[in-house]
Nucleic acid binder design. Structure first.
Length: 630
RNA sequence: GGGCAUGUGGCGUAAUUUGGAUAGCGCACCUGGCUUCGGACCAGGGGGUUGCGGGUUCAAAUCCCGUCAUGCCCGCCA
């Protein structure tokens, strides 16, 4: 399915190109120069415009206006185009509203749930890792940012015809888990609340006792035993981590976020992926055994050799990055290299999996497991890591190492969706010191959702538009979630995000509830008009005016461009921007163009129907549900 | 010391990758609008030397150089 906007833009650039090559061959313009010169102008200047005459005028010392006139004279006709006009040295295209609206609205209605989708991925497999929270605490709002970005980008990739595996990495062998186990032994207390919350609070208490006599030695002893596998400690670590993950997944479920597979660090260790990757690195002379200097006895990678890959490695304090410590244990980077060799199918290994029961019916979740069956996860064409931008350096080492081993093409397919840290006014969200606990309200995903729900419930209960009153809690839940998701996703990922309760619970203006409201109003208009997509024979598209109705149509026509850009650049905020723009256009439309009592009722209903499709699809990409009344 | 980000009306943000016509939007503030498809709304208004200084260009928030501020990274932590 092609989109009318594509046809139009293609025609416009081709016509300009052939006129230009005929009239001004000396400039040597390529078709891409023409395509790049095309943009959407302010609407008094038309619907599409090209600045290419200005460029040509410069070359010939002519007036841009004369050049645009000459080009226009040499361009052909198109039924979708009403007029070409030279204004201020630009070539401005005015669309034939009736023809274009017809094409756009009918394609939206016939494509329905698929409208806006594009085929970028050809079904190729993408592994999206998110949020990979340590199994020692509840999700706080920083983890939530990760989870929401991961979910949205997965939805967008799927819409662009990638086969997406939503993967979660669980580090059950980390220092934090060892510290928790120490706490279990030495402090003893029973969970009296949601397990992850309780564990997170325990962790803060445990931290207060670190650095006192003998404690750190005890903990590193526990960590060693955990990593050796088949020990009491390794079993205890996985057990407690599992209970925490179960609790975290309740949070995930409440936000409507799901995964396909979780991969446990302890299973990666059992699989000996690390040994395989280290061996490969050594045999390719990318890794080296250091037998002198401060890294004596370690296996390292030479950072100076990596300068070919990035400026980041210039003048570092260190010339080597340790991969395997002198005691034989691996660093985080080494583990990550091994894991990515599996993700990309460089290491041909299949984990065993079993199905988990912590997601809703129909949302199958598998977990690596000693006693499961082999399944076909991993071996992906592209890997997306949703990780804080603080880890840019490590991600770069990872990619550079794989390139040095001869896997440049695969390394290029590792994408770091880097996001800025989430902060709170006058504080940090530290897990160690317990900054996430806040003063009166904890900054957890659970508390945030509770707050959003109760605010939404208050508003929803006042609504006189909801016929089925028993649906109110469900509707309020959807509204609360939308407020949070939209608030987090509307800003660029790389920007630092200072959280504020006020802003997160805003239901007006640029907000999720505003968008949902717009959708509900559109649905109500269709209902009052007894409209259905099938019941209409001939739509009078000639009644489209150059007013708010056509403004809306033009935006509906842009959907696929927005989706494609968001996918290429891994930026869900582009979708959020588009939703805001189109919902505002819809508000202006229904305020100024009557639907029900008009001589173009069927036509306008049809536009509203297309609007419902597009806004529903776009909100869906952000993980936001729509409701018909609220 | 080196590297990487970020800096846009009082606050929050879009546009920066690919230079283009009057820097878009929300919150807050001011004015007006529910007997007419839903006021979680709409219309109108005030508020900007796009951190600062240079440069390139017909054209700079956008590109280049310098500079300042803030944050992060450069560990045998993860």
């Amino acid at each position: 399915m092609d989109y009318p906007k594509n046809d139009l833009t293609l025609w416009f650039s081709n016509e300009i190109y052939s006129a230009v090559t005929k009239l001004y061959p000396e400039v040597g313009l390529e078709i891409t120069h023409i395509t790049d010169s095309i943009s959407t102008p302010n609407k008094e200047f038309g619907d599409l415009s090209s600045s290419v005459p200005i460029r040509i005028a410069k070359h010939y010392q002519k007036k841009p206006a004369d050049v645009s006139e000459e080009i226009i004279k040499n361009m052909g006709k198109n039924a979708m185009v009403r007029e070409l006009r030279g204004i201020g040295g630009y070539i401005n295209l005015f669309i034939n509203e009736a023809m274009y609206s017809h094409e756009v609205i009918e394609s939206a209605i016939s494509m329905g749930k698929r409208y806006g989708s594009v085929n970028k991925g050809d079904g190729k497999r993408v592994l999206v890792e998110s949020p990979a929270v340590n199994p020692t605490k509840p999700w706080h709002i920083g983890h939530l940012r990760n989870a929401l970005l991961g979910d949205a980008i997965s939805n967008i990739l799927e819409f662009c015809n990638y086969f997406v595996e939503r993967e979660d990495y669980i580090d059950d062998l980390g220092l934090q888990v060892a510290e928790i186990l120490w706490g279990q032994k030495n402090m003893g207390s029973d969970p009296d609340k949601k397990f992850d919350q309780w564990l997170g609070e325990q962790y803060v208490e445990i931290n207060k006792r670190l650095n006192s006599e003998g404690v750190n030695e005890d903990i590193s002893g526990i960590l060693k035993k955990m990593e050796s596998g088949n020990s009491e400690e390794s079993k205890a670590a996985r057990d407690i981590a599992f209970k925490c993950v179960e609790a975290q997944y309740e949070t995930s479920k409440s936000y409507g976020i799901f995964h396909d597979v979780m991969i446990w660090e302890s299973d990666i260790v059992m699989a000996k992926l690390l040994e395989m990757s280290i061996e490969m690195g050594l045999s390719k002379n990318v890794f080296e055994k250091s037998d002198s200097g401060k890294n004596k006895g370690c296996i390292v990678v030479n950072l100076d050799k990596m300068r070919n890959f990035a400026r980041d490695f210039e003048n570092p304090n260190e010339h080597e990055k340790v991969l395997v410590r002198s005691d034989g244990t691996a660093t985080y980077v080494a583990k990550d290299i091994a894991f990515h060799m599996w993700k990309l199918g460089i290491l041909d290994f299949k984990f065993k999996y079993k199905e988990m029961s912590m997601q809703s019916v129909g949302k199958r979740l598998y977990s690596t497991s000693e006693d499961g069956v082999e399944m076909d996860f991993g071996n992906a064409y592209m890997v997306i890591n949703v990780i804080g931008s603080a880890q840019r350096y490590t991600q770069l080492i990872l990619k550079s190492v794989l390139s040095m081993m001869g896997y440049e093409k695969k390394a290029e397919k590792i994408k770091h969706l880097a996001y800025g840290e989430v902060g709170i006014e006058g504080g940090s969200l530290s897990g160690r010191t317990g900054g996430w606990l806040g003063n009166n309200k904890a900054y957890t995903a659970d508390v945030l959702l509770d707050e959003a729900r109760s605010k939404a419930l208050e508003a929803t209960e006042k609504s006189k538009k909801i016929e089925h009153r028993d649906k109110i809690p469900e509707i309020a839940n959807a509204i609360g979630i939308s407020a949070i998701k939209f608030e987090f996703l509307k800003v660029s990922a790389e920007k630092p995000f200072i959280f504020s309760w006020n802003s997160a619970l805003n239901f007006e203006g640029n907000s999720g509830p505003y968008c949902m409201y717009s959708y509900a109003r559109a649905k109500r208009i269709l209902e009052k008009c007894n409209y259905s997509d099938e019941s209409i024979d001939a739509i009078e598209y000639e009644k489209v005016t150059r007013g708010k109705d056509f403004d809306l149509v033009k935006l509906i026509a842009d959907a696929h461009e927005v989706v494609e850009k968001a996918c290429e650049e891994l930026r869900p905020n582009i979708i959020a921007d588009y939703i805001i723009e189109i919902t505002m256009a819809f508000s202006r439309f229904y305020e100024s163009v009557p639907v029900m009592n008009s001589n173009a009722k069927e036509l306008r209903c049809r536009i509203v129907s297309a609007y419902v499709i597009i806004v529903g699809n776009m909100l869906g990409l952000l993980g936001i549900q729509t409701v018909d009344s609220m």
